[in-house]
Amino acid sequence: MASNTVSTQIQLVNRPVGWPTDADFRTVTVDLPELAAGQIRVANEFISVDPYMRGRMNDVKSYIPPFVLGETMTGAAVGRVIASANEAFAIGDVVTHQYGWRDLVQEDAAGFRVVPELPGVPASAYLGVLGMTALTAYVGLLEIAGLKEGDTVFVSGAAGAVGSMVGQIARLKGAKRVIGSAGSPEKVALLTSKYGFDAAFNYKDGSITDQLAAAAPDGIDVYFDNVGGEHLEAALASLNDGGRAALCGAISLYNSTDAPAGPNNLSNIVTRGLTLRGFTIGNYWAHLPAFSAEMAAWLDSGEIVFDETVVDGVENSVEAFLGLMRGENTGKMVVRTGGLIPTL
């Protein structure tokens, strides 16, 4: 039985060059002290691994500070309070926070948010369909790209955590046609059979530009970019006059050691009057209440569905992250730490 005072944690010890390896990380155990006034102790049930974390492994200026070498990595997680020295948090409360990559966390209560337990919905949903992942899809599609009823939408990385939400939200908000790309026949089939995409293609099967043109013969109005590179070039070729692109990620480039070549058709931005707008979700938390209300209703009605790829054991967090970067996930990739049963 796991101890409720010994925390297993994952730390970054080297700055990866290209693809991260196991040697860039270490697993440590930390004895937690007695709770100080205002603190709580949480047994994580699930922690999140996300593409943006690759950027944080580099010591470069960005929208979020890099991971500190020799310190435990952070990120989204959900768990239960198992000890509390703060009257606002009771033992057994489900909370979300940003102290990921460990099975037990003890910090000031200000860093945690109590969330409701929803019947039939796993706590891990707060890392995906009810969390930052789906909020990113919601904001990127509606606020950044300005989706309009009747638009044709293209989503790259469409079977991933964000992409699968983008396609479904676009359909619910009145898109005329929704097209997605993915990296396997199984994922392509899932896009049309489960997530409601009108068309999908495997980007490994040939020219992305040609496949997108075939799927969208009348062009596209909105592009949601999770991949960058050749996908962005294909979207620039297909965007209609006045088209808009929300640039969310560029996972195809994150582990590259060579300077990436830019799309060769950037002049289309000028000649077609296109708008390409990058964003990070940290600047759009004001949309959380509206998103939460709509997403809860969609989930309750069955209009939104979601998948998770679950890796067991906090000690396997690095392998889960590398699997995510290799595209081995369908939907949200999470690590199930197991958590502890609170003692009341």
Rank of each mutant, 00 (worst) to 15 (best):
I251T: 10
W298K: 02
P66R: 06
K204A: 04
A125Y: 11
L276N: 01
P185D: 08
G339R: 12
K148G: 05
T96I: 14
L344K: 13
N14C: 05
A145K: 09
T309C: 01
P20K: 05
G18K: 12
N226Q: 06
G75C: 07
A182G: 04
Y126L: 10
F67S: 01
D103A: 06
D22Y: 13
A76P: 08
Q168K: 12
S238M: 14
A85L: 08
G323F: 14
Q11R: 15
A200D: 07
V115L: 06
I144E: 10
S317M: 09
P16W: 14
A245V: 04
M132N: 01
V17L: 12
L239F: 14
F197K: 09
D31T: 15
G100K: 05
M53W: 04
A215G: 04
K173Q: 14
T280Y: 13
A213M: 05
N265P: 01
G206E: 05
V227P: 05
F154E: 04
V42I: 11
G55R: 10
D221F: 07
L190M: 15
D210R: 12
S207H: 08
K194Q: 14
T136M: 07
Y203G: 01
Q106H: 03
L135H: 10
P122H: 11
I144H: 11
G92M: 10
A199F: 13
M1G: 14
S164A: 10
N240P: 04
F197L: 04
T74G: 11
S164P: 07
A77G: 05
N283H: 15
T96S: 08
G302L: 10
T330S: 11
T257D: 12
A199I: 12
D221G: 03
L212D: 09
R26E: 13
S181R: 03
V318R: 02
I169T: 03
W285D: 09
L127C: 02
T275M: 12
T29N: 08
L324M: 14
T74P: 00
S256P: 04
T72A: 07
G262A: 15
S84D: 00
M333V: 03
G150W: 10
V335I: 06
Y284E: 09
A77Y: 07
V13F: 09
A175Y: 13
R244N: 02
A213D: 07
Y223D: 05
D258T: 15
D151N: 11
D50R: 02
M295K: 08
I179P: 00
L118S: 00
I281A: 01
N86L: 09
V334M: 03
R41T: 03
R54A: 01
S292P: 00
Q9W: 10
R177S: 11
G273F: 13
K332I: 03
Y126Q: 04
G313A: 04
S292F: 13
L266W: 15
H97S: 10
I82Y: 02
F291Y: 09
V162M: 04
T309Y: 01
N265Y: 10
I10W: 02
T5S: 11
A297F: 06
G228T: 02
F291Q: 03
E149A: 14
M295D: 03
N240V: 11
I304Q: 09
